[in-house]
Design a binder for these strands. Structure first.
Lengths: 331, 331
DNA sequence: GATAGTTTTGGGAACGTTCCCAAAACTATG
DNA sequence: CATAGTTTTGGGAACGTTCCCAAAACTATC
């Protein structure tokens, strides 16, 4: 109370109306000079707001954490958090015990205002609990339950586009290296693949569908399993796997795209220097992170808000790994 | 106060001594039943402890955030946080304005008990400020100032080992693709390279030293710049760059290791499926993360503690990208 | 210049803990 | 069974804010 009073200062800090401009000036000057900063603990005690958002990566998703996907998602999330003066807390689990120990802490919900959960797992167990405890949250990855707000990329449409691209280039035996069977994005991308084949009257051959786990190494192995079945083109559900697949082909002295064409999903930077550069489906990961935060904050500010269900489009990026229509026609 | 009193409950919660076993039982039973959980805000208001650790990634380092290094570091950090009942908050900056806006918030230090800073940048500006404000912190990445606690990997020795390995295999013109000139790890690895050459009486040729920025794409470009100078072997300061370099060689139809040998640094998973599999220097990144937290907590618990300066060893992992001694001898 | 109305300010209570000290309840001893 | 000593318990104060309401200070009107 260097200048005048106490609760007036509070008003100035939170710039509430009804304080004389002159006083306002004086107080904010002193605030600036002393470098005063309101104590967040005391604030949150009375407000019931912490200014913290939690990012939860469940155990089943955690193995994907090393995927290039996560850093980009986190960049988006932190950028939006910074813009809106929120802090991000990160929850990763490394074992079942950790998960069961920390879930109550998360559900009790005194630590943060809202949660972003990367719930790309089929039958995620945390989502229903969050719902039951009325913890405000948004899922990165779509969710069946109509109560759940989510943001996702249009995986089905992206995969569909990829496969149609291959079909239009004239390939017949089109295979796919899918992601983990329990991963929702993987399921969706597989669905897009199936839809495209069905719509164009192509047969579906189970031998041409193999699974990886989104890692480069798994893409390598998957492609080796695929080779005996003589695919002409492969839709690979992630660029990391596509790079691995490319290496398997190189190892087997199989020319891309002349002998086998490849299309990926993600558009991560190394795709541009793959040999050949990788045609792929670009997904706006950072944008997903940014919007996740913004939608969550909307929900926090307006309790009555209906659940938001947002799906962002993807984009076909054509490079060299599928060959061109012209070349194919000539062939 | 379902059972008895108030401050007794407090004692039970924090299991302080001097409470009758019988009462203890009764209270904890009720606590368990009601699912009571102490309010962190109120707690931290009186304790001046938040149970939160901040991980700060300064702007100059942020471009490296997409490197596979970070997810692994974060896994280590979160694992240790979970073990010790701490929460991790993440601070990434995306512009100068953000940085200057958030630094005061961080320095004010009401938000967390301590900070882990990834200060691998030469002349980082945050470190002196943290010191001046007496914020407890630990740097991931060594630091000159003897007041600073840090944990780092022995980059100099790792690089030294790598180059000695090349020398022992009989290579003469040994080049290096270094990291960003302002990055401390990059500087150290370059130093290790120089030391090894000097110790073995090899000439130092500036044409054989090029820089990348740790990304795969930059490794690709760096190798292209290197090719005209006819290196026999290259020490690449990160596996990501090494994979890029490998691709440049493949592009130029240069056999590895027969025409040019390559050794990386990191041992990230794709190194195993590179063609040829990459010989590299393994660094214990996750361990760094775990220890960063543990050392920080030590410091928090004992104010008088001397600054800790920890350097972890690296390990040479031999695969095929350098050829073998036997082959070299035959050659 | 008194009155009513409006704007601005100040003080008490509350948020949910922990800490400290005093009170109460036990226990052992003569 | 009184006393001293020890263990256990309870209540007040404090942590640093915000919110609410009442008091004070202005402003306009007659």
């Amino acid at each position: 109370m260097a200048g005048v009073s106490r609760s007036t200062v509070s008003r100035v800090i939170n710039n509430q109306p009804g304080v004389k401009p002159e006083v306002q000036q004086r107080v904010s000057k002193i605030v600036a000079e002393t470098g005063y900063y309101p104590n967040p603990a005391a604030r949150s005690l009375v407000n019931h707001q912490t200014g913290i958002i939690g990012l939860v990566v469940p155990l089943q998703v955690q193995s994907l954490f090393v995927d290039p996907y996560f850093p980009r998602l986190i960049q988006g999330i932190t950028q939006a958090c910074n813009n809106h003066d929120y802090t991000l807390s990160l929850f990763l689990f490394h074992s079942d015990e950790e998960e069961s120990k920390l879930y109550p802490k998360i559900l009790r919900n005194q630590l943060f205002d809202g949660i972003i959960i990367t719930a790309t797992q089929v039958n995620d167990i945390l989502v229903p609990q969050l719902l039951a405890n009325k913890v405000p949250f948004i899922s990165v990855g779509r969710h069946e339950n109509s109560q759940v707000s989510f943001i996702d990329v249009d995986n089905v449409a992206g995969a569909y586009t990829a496969v149609i691209h291959l079909i239009r280039l004239g390939y017949q035996r089109i295979a796919t290296i899918a992601g983990p069977a329990k991963n929702l994005s993987a399921v969706d991308r597989l669905q897009g693949y199936l839809n495209a084949l069905r719509d164009r009257g192509y047969p579906i051959d189970n031998e041409l569908i193999v699974n990886g786990d989104f890692t480069e190494v798994s893409g390598y192995e998957a492609m080796q399993r695929l080779l005996p079945h003589k695919p002409e083109a492969v839709f690979v559900a992630s660029d990391a796997m596509a790079v691995g697949a490319l290496r398997a082909l190189q190892n087997g002295n199989i020319a891309v795209p002349n002998q086998i064409a490849l299309i990926g999903f993600d558009d991560f930077p190394p795709a541009t220097i793959a040999i050949p550069p990788l045609t792929t489906i670009r997904q706006p990961i950072k944008q997903v992170g940014i919007m996740a935060v913004e939608v969550l904050l909307d929900i926090l500010n307006d309790e009555t808000k209906q659940p938001q269900r947002i799906i962002l489009p993807t984009e076909l990026v054509i490079r060299d790994s599928c060959g061109s229509t012209i070349e194919r026609r000539r062939y």
